[in-house]
Computed example of a mutant assay.
Amino acid sequence: MKTIKIEKKDWEQGLEKLKESYRLFGPMPDKDDFEFKELNAGETPVLGNGNTRLSVKSVIYPQSQTMFTYTLDESKPDHHIMKQVELKGEKPRAVVGVRPCDAASFKLVRRNFDSPEYKDPFWVEPYEETTLVGYACDEPLTTCFCTSVGCGPYNEEGLDLLLVKEGDDFFARILTKKGEDLAVAAGWSADADFDFESRKTAAEEKITAQISTDGLKEKKTTDLFEADFWDQIGFSCLNCGTCTYSCPTCWCFDIQDEVKGTEGKRIRNWDSCMYTLFTLEGSGHNPRPNKVQRVRQRFMHKLKYYVDKYDAGVQCVGCGRCIQLCPVNIDIREVCEIMKNYTPAPQEA
């Protein structure tokens, strides 16, 4: 595993070189926060400001994405035929400044879009053509609990290259062939030694929030589903969807057609299990008409259904966004603890 040093003067020059062969994205100011945006000429990503408001998933999986186009004009030979949009652009994408927890989320999400039975090209192809340049997290927030869920501030899983800032310079650990190709394209090649492990240990020691997911798999699903604590958890919930939109491992979407005149397109948009219409059926029946049922669905999916289906941990990377952004202070760490410790009352004889 090769480590290189990127001096300050080479950093900005390298980014400009990359824009010749990549569509480059990174954290940029957006009102009172930071969001991942495509970098224009002369722009450099703003690193070191904690997690962005939304995760990097929007680069791979946009909030609104056109899948097919069609025409209803019967004078045209291809009328009423769906045409898939071109997925590959002229340039591959690279994202600079990805937090390790965001990169790890793609492994969890991929199980939904890329399985032995089905591959979703609208997710798989953009993901596979994107290079993820991570930025190690030396100052985790009080809401971060990534080390409790198999991740960490220096986690390398899902990344192609991992950056660490030292003074005005960067040290980078090249993790994959895509990461090596990006470094070459940027002109970053100075071999170096850097003690990643000491920095990793120091960063992990700063994480004070912990949860334990042990025992969730052994819990009986129907016991948790029918538990009486959901009313208390969901009492203050507004069903605003902030938790699901900010979560890097939420993947639900809705598909709609939009037509103007005779020209139409089929698009998919992020959706949320917090919304009333999410499970509304064509018959008018809604199996989750109440907000408490929708709150239960979110946490059961993250902390129980995913665990039961894949036996690969919870569907969470511990980024803490939902804790930070929830307007009524619902905390997934507390919910996990309640679920883990729940014991149903004994049945009367």
Results as ranks from 00 to 15, higher is better:
I81Y: 10
C144H: 02
D102A: 05
V109W: 12
S272M: 08
E205F: 06
C151W: 04
C137A: 03
Y245V: 11
T66S: 13
K5I: 15
F235A: 15
V184K: 15
M67P: 10
T69Q: 13
S55M: 04
G318D: 09
K83V: 10
L224V: 00
D138G: 02
S115I: 04
G167M: 04
I4G: 04
V46I: 10
C319E: 01
H79Y: 09
P344L: 00
T276Y: 15
S64D: 12
K88A: 10
G264K: 02
T276W: 13
V314D: 00
V85K: 06
V295D: 08
W251T: 12
V85T: 12
C101S: 03
G241W: 02
L163E: 02
Y154E: 00
E263L: 07
E157M: 05
F278V: 08
G241T: 05
C237T: 02
E180T: 08
L238H: 15
W270F: 08
L39S: 01
F171L: 07
P45M: 10
V328N: 08
Y306P: 10
A209L: 14
N269A: 09
N269Y: 05
G284C: 04
G179M: 02
L87P: 01
W123A: 02
E125H: 08
P62G: 09
I207A: 03
K260F: 08
S212K: 14
K178M: 01
K19N: 06
C273I: 00
P327R: 09
V317I: 13
K37P: 09
V46S: 14
C336P: 13
V109C: 10
R93N: 13
P287C: 07
D73A: 13
E139S: 13
